[in-house]
Amino acid sequence: MKPGAAGLLAVTALVAAGCSSESGTGPTYTNPASEDTATSTPAAPTTTPRITNPPTTTPRPTTPANPTPHKRTKPTPVLRPKPTAEPTRPRRPTSQRPRSVRQAPMRKSAPTRIVIPAIGVDSSLIRLGLDRRGSLQVPPHGFPAGWFTGGPTPGETGPAVIVGHVRWAGRPGVFGPLRDVRAGDKIAVTRNDRTTATFRVTRISQYSKSTFPSAAVYGNLDHAGLRLITCSGLDSTSGKFEANLVVFADLIR
């Protein structure tokens, strides 16, 4: 807020008082009585003597030789009262988190490579199908990762699936660091048509193999998605993995 106007000043006025006087009444004059020459006794006056008043004058105020000058009182500034509370500052507009804008799907093209910069994964891709039991095949070795050919290619509408081992022969596999991926990390998949489908991780979930939610992982989508799958939940007694780690991601370009 802009500061207010300056405080007002009170002005002290000087008032000069004038002097006043009343005029008195002068003495009354009477004519002396006339003596009657005919009689020896005095006679009463025949006429009423006229009373004359002398002119009245108002004395002028005398000014002293060295008049004492009046001292001017300095104007007393009127100070604004201090605010009892801090003025309310305008709130800044709250910035809302922009919603993720989904990219239009890409044309069909087989993937050839996957790169996850945040965790240092860089692998070529092989093709995987279904085994005799109808389950998803797994890569024959710890490297490289594999793309499931029964689903859409990365960038097409639907959930593209890429799988890899977390460990192989006692050593970390291609997806060994997958547990360190975080929401917001990017995944780049190079395709046969020399284009790159870039995905952003939305969430990471772990599911027991006995209750794996196939519909949630492999179900139809209205946009281009990606699923990265590896083993997790190592049982120290049996030495087997009892769960699967699934990374969900959406196409951003």
Rank of each mutant, 00 (worst) to 15 (best):
residue 157 T to K: 13
residue 161 V to F: 11
residue 154 P to A: 10
residue 103 Q to H: 13
residue 194 R to L: 06
residue 200 R to C: 04
residue 197 A to F: 05
residue 127 R to V: 13
residue 174 V to G: 05
residue 185 D to H: 13
residue 96 Q to K: 12
residue 126 I to V: 14
residue 181 V to W: 01
residue 157 T to C: 03
residue 205 S to F: 00
residue 195 T to H: 10
residue 117 P to Q: 06
residue 148 F to H: 14
residue 129 G to R: 11
residue 140 P to K: 06
residue 99 R to Y: 03
residue 120 G to C: 04
residue 108 K to V: 09
residue 189 V to W: 09
residue 138 V to F: 00
residue 102 R to I: 11
residue 133 R to C: 00
residue 198 T to C: 01
residue 169 A to R: 13
residue 133 R to K: 12
residue 199 F to A: 09
residue 183 A to E: 11
residue 94 T to I: 11
residue 176 G to C: 01
residue 151 G to E: 05
residue 187 I to C: 07
residue 197 A to V: 04
residue 118 A to L: 02
residue 120 G to F: 00
residue 158 G to I: 04
residue 202 T to W: 02
residue 177 P to W: 03
residue 207 Y to N: 12
residue 111 P to V: 02
residue 165 H to F: 03
residue 127 R to S: 13
residue 123 S to N: 05
residue 166 V to C: 08
residue 192 N to Q: 14
residue 98 P to Q: 13
residue 191 R to T: 08
residue 169 A to C: 00
residue 181 V to K: 09
residue 204 I to C: 09
residue 193 D to Q: 07
residue 119 I to V: 15
residue 208 S to F: 00
residue 162 I to C: 09
residue 187 I to V: 15
residue 99 R to W: 01
residue 145 A to C: 05
residue 159 P to D: 13
residue 156 E to Y: 02
residue 206 Q to R: 12
residue 163 V to Y: 01
residue 135 S to L: 10
residue 167 R to H: 12
residue 142 G to Q: 08
residue 93 P to C: 00
residue 127 R to A: 13
residue 176 G to N: 13
residue 201 V to Q: 08
residue 183 A to W: 00
residue 185 D to G: 07
residue 116 I to V: 15
residue 130 L to T: 15
residue 115 V to Y: 04
residue 146 G to F: 01
residue 176 G to R: 00
residue 149 T to N: 09
residue 100 S to T: 15
residue 102 R to T: 12
residue 174 V to R: 03
residue 130 L to D: 14
